[in-house]
Design a protein around this nucleic acid. Structure first.
Lengths: 204, 204
DNA sequence: TCTCGTATTGAACGCTGGACCAATAAGGAG
DNA sequence: CTCCTTATTGGTCCAGCGTTCAATACGAGA
């Protein structure tokens, strides 16, 4: 009765994709080994053959989600923007666009995040991920501070990076639960109105 | 064998407190009727006698959490601050202090928030709650805009209120998962550095 | 072609959770 | 005191879960 075999790596990916599909639809609470197996057209036993337990599967799924999520990086068009503050703003805009572009992925991310409160293995991974995200903002934040040292005398690059992350995650908190009523443009222009004026020659 | 009776209202509150205790420790995933009953020193049947089903209990718990959570309101000391922007900042500071003051409650809040992605009844309540929260910021945001109309020409009070909520929720996203490594003061001074300069006569 | 390791299956086990219910005690009304 | 409503109990049921396992089929190497 067994079906055709497949390589270890291919099977794991197939199962992880199925797990992602289930979890992104039903949430982590609705993620069961049986559902994953059914979605992947495999037996339940095989899922647990490749991932020793459900916990291993969940952690592997988290790693999969974090790996396949676009990491923050400076694209050429953004890097070429002269004003550091405009560069930071352009990055924020791009990240906010991702919120509406792949809501299911972001929701799953936050589902894991909330599970991290009680699950140590998930927690450490989420801590590392958010750290990584904040660190990606730091060099740009540092450039913003360097451009206007007197105005940001008591501000650190770490703090500014944290605020940048806060902008995005805070936007996500509001938009993920209520996409229809959340106005991205309003949020953006309010953000620009707050910080945009600090750049001396910034054309907004 | 039945124990002493109690009034409908008293029993419900007793059960809800037990449910809150369990959920704030173990998370919503660890919330079971049996645990709640045990924590309240009652039989499992009684819990389901007062709350017809577990779902009813969960929704009632959510309402309980939202009701007993301090609503955002202007205290006298904050209302007496002359500069609108300083008033807004003072509010943000107070809300951020609540994040570290009652982390378990906030974590439970976000747990519900994430469950709202897949559970319609939870979702509408969280939408309404976040709306309410944002609306509470709106009048203060409007005063900020009125104080400097030319600088905020394209900014609406709704947008500014949303950004204020974003500041706080974004701070929560980072601090709830990693309280030890998150620096509230750094976050705050970066925030003040960004927006504080906009107030002409603000002494920070 | 034969063989051996292993990927694969489907059924079975044990457990936990929500839900249900007959029996029972409690307390107020008459 | 008696009765009647109902809050309360503990046990039971059943569905669904993660996990285990003997049986089985596949495919590479000899």
């Amino acid at each position: 009765m067994p079906g055709s075999k497949a390589s270890e790596e291919a099977r794991r990916k197939q199962i992880l994709r199925a797990a992602y599909d289930v979890a992104s639809r039903k949430g982590l609470a609705g993620l069961t080994v049986r559902h994953v197996a059914a979605k992947a057209d495999l037996s339940t036993g095989l899922v647990l053959f490749h991932f020793k337990s459900k916990e291993h599967l969940v952690i592997a799924l988290l790693d999969y989600v974090l790996e396949t999520t676009t990491v923050l990086h400076l694209t050429e068009d953004i890097a070429s923007i002269p004003s550091p503050l405009d560069r930071l703003l352009a990055l924020l805009v791009r990240e906010m666009n991702r919120l509406s572009a792949e809501p299911r992925r972001i929701r799953l991310f936050f589902d894991f995040w909330a599970q991290g409160f009680t699950h140590p293995l998930i927690r450490v991974r989420m801590q590392a991920e958010i750290d990584r995200y904040r660190e990606a903002f730091r060099p740009i934040a540092a450039e913003v501070l360097a451009a206007e040292p007197d105005r940001f005398s008591h501000v650190t690059a770490e703090g500014l990076a944290a605020v940048a992350v806060g902008f995005i995650k805070g936007c996500a908190v509001q938009s993920m639960i209520d996409p229809k009523n959340f106005d991205f443009d309003e949020y953006l222009s309010a953000m620009q109105g707050l910080v945009g004026q600090l750049a001396p020659g910034a054309a907004v």
